[in-house]
Amino acid sequence: MRPSNPWLNVALWVILSFTTLFPIYWLFVISVKPAVDLFTTPSVILDTVYWRNYVEVFHDPTLRRYMTNSLIVSTGNAVLCSVLAFMACYALSRYDIGGKENIFFWTITNRMAPAAVFLLPFFLLFTKVFVIGDFKLYDTRIGLILLYSTFNLPFAIWTLRPTIDGIPRELDEAATVDGASTWQTIREVIWPLAKPGLAVTFILIWVFAWNEFLLAATLTSFNARTITTGLSEYVTTTGTEWGKMAAISIFTLIPALIIFSMVQRHIVAGLTFGAVKE
């Protein structure tokens, strides 16, 4: 391409990075200001840092419960999806299953549907149909875990399939010749080799489940509320406490940021269903 001054590019990217980062920085600025200072002239530079918002949010028992719920639901969902997807991918890759490409494709279409469409049926199923005695799936963590699987399991299958397909068949054939059972083959041959791919899948699913809002907001009321729902609650009930809202946002953001630094390279592949490899 046409030779251009590289420093011009750098300057341009500094501006663009500023545009990307500034809103998040602003979130932080709001979160460390006392409420009285918010309505004066907005200032970009921090002179004093006020941690009370964080302390209050951290000591709020409701929010702590939301945080715990979020952690349990995301982790449970990621474990469930990874294990099931691992089994399913192994089956699709190694066994001669009739119509397996159709099964593969059907699982994917499950993810394409907008979540809002399923609010009503899920709500009715959870409150009226899937009821055993006094137990309802509505407002339970296990309900959310199963629900998220509808959207995340297809994703897991989609991203894990190439990993499992990439493990040479000769390895498990050799193990079988040596007298290993299917279970032993899976545990000792396939599992260790699939681990890196599995880890990426696990982490991305974890983030998706952590970030989910709409279904959690509709299908929980008290016990199983997640932190994202807590955040939205804060805005509607006490709309004026901007500082706390910003602090909760930061709390919601932190796990995702940690994840981000871990799997930065795989995010795009993940978000495009592996259509784009970097």
Binding site: S17, T20, L27, I30, V207, N211, V235, S249, T252, V268
Partner: peptide
């Protein structure tokens, strides 16, 4: 840096932009 927004929860994106655009804050 450019990849960063992708991982932010949509609900947090909403709250970030609300703080950016609400009049007087």
């Amino acid at each position: 840096i450019h990849t960063l927004p992708l991982i932010v929860a949509p609900i947090v994106v909403g709250s970030v932009w609300r703080l950016m655009t609400t009049p007087s804050i």
